[in-house]
Design a protein around this nucleic acid. Structure first.
Lengths: 210, 210
DNA sequence: TTGATATGGAACATTTTGTTCACTTTTAGT
DNA sequence: ACTAAAAGTGAACAAAATGTTCCATATCAA
């Protein structure tokens, strides 16, 4: 009698089928863009029966979403592991997060390109946006005291910072990564975080750079 | 005998049909989002024959694009007229442009909401992005000399500024315009343009605020 | 080996799309 | 007011895509 298993590894056939479908979708997105793909295209490419497809996913969108989630669960775990180092200041930690993102992007370039660069619908962007909003939020809240003097309200500054980060990722991908991940992180920090520094130094009427 | 008329006003019936279809699309977008709308929905709402729809537009997307273009032609003309005043500095002119955008957005709120706030697919965002890229580009190029000292390259700074402006518009709409158009312009200037000021003052190792 | 589970594939009803055509209505110009 | 041209109507149609069902077959885990 089968025990109530919390989360058992799925059947080997299931893994195979799902992987085939995910890969088929990604390659098709890269070739023709998400919108014009049909379920038929996907199962043809994956060599999978029609009924099998619907046994695993509700529709095309469901397949995309589950793929994105799988990708990002991995990323979040990596970040969680990396951030056990609490010795970092909040600015260092957001820099670290940014660098992680750019490196992760570089490592999974073809995948990110499929999911991000227009062709992937908005779902991927929405999902990653959600993730980084959390991270950026933590950072901004940690600096909240010194930000009260700043006129741009937090509710605007938060999506602003997140958006800028993602805009940089998309730009970077679409231009075939002409700068290094470190340089991109540098740009990100300059554009969005210098702001705080310069504002603060203005407040205190003196330079506070060490 | 019909002369070769450069651009004659179209038949009254044509105007009526096209207006009905455009309005139907916008109202449907606001109700259920762009993606799930079918041509049938549109012609039902507009009370227009199926064949009539296809006589005017290739498909749903074509209808959306032509609507957006119509909207923005008006906006560009307004801007062109307003910008005949050459007495403005480049910073004043971009502030003016930003204010125009926020006010225009406020005046056509329901329309912009339909086209922008997610529900409207990416086409609207793409189109307006294209327009403001041009404007921002002019501004940035005018300030090019003083920007050579800045490390974030122009090719990144341009989409960055444009993106920030549009992000603010979308945020503003989705939060039901809690700030005035003037305040939003203020935030925009602070986030993206102060950057230049503070960087420059840092370069020169002294405050240059008057 | 065996019982359970997943896949394959065809058949099917439904929905949406885009075209065509014969007919009616409206328009602009005189 | 008359008329030819232009536009709209609605039904009918083919084609494509969607999502479901059923059952024989293949594969798995034990």
């Amino acid at each position: 009698m089968p025990e109530i298993k919390d989360k058992k590894e799925p059947d080997r056939r299931v893994r195979r089928t799902q992987q085939l479908l995910q890969e088929a979708l990604v390659s098709l997105i890269l070739e023709q863009g998400y919108d014009s793909i049909t379920v038929q295209d996907i199962i043809d490419r994956a060599n999978v029966g029609r009924s099998t497809f619907y046994a695993h996913y509700l529709d095309k969108e469901d397949l995309l979403l589950k793929g994105i989630d799988r990708l990002f669960r991995g990323f979040e775990e990596q970040q969680l592991a990396a951030n056990k180092d609490f010795s970092l200041s909040s600015i260092e930690s957001i820099e670290r997060m940014s660098l992680d993102l750019f490196q992760h992007t570089q490592n999974h370039q073809h995948l990110f390109k499929a999911l991000f660069s227009k062709r992937g619908g908005d779902y991927a962007a929405k999902r990653i946006h959600q993730h980084f909003t959390k991270v950026v939020e933590q950072f901004l809240q940690a600096r909240l005291p010194e930000m009260l003097a700043i006129t741009v309200p937090l509710e605007i500054r938060l999506p602003y910072v997140t958006h800028t980060l993602l805009m940089l990722v998309v730009w970077w991908l679409e231009h075939d990564t002409p700068y290094s991940a470190e340089e991109m992180t540098g740009f990100f920090v300059q554009l969005t975080l210098n702001q705080e520094r310069s504002s603060r130094s203005f407040e205190q009427n003196g330079a506070t750079y060490t």
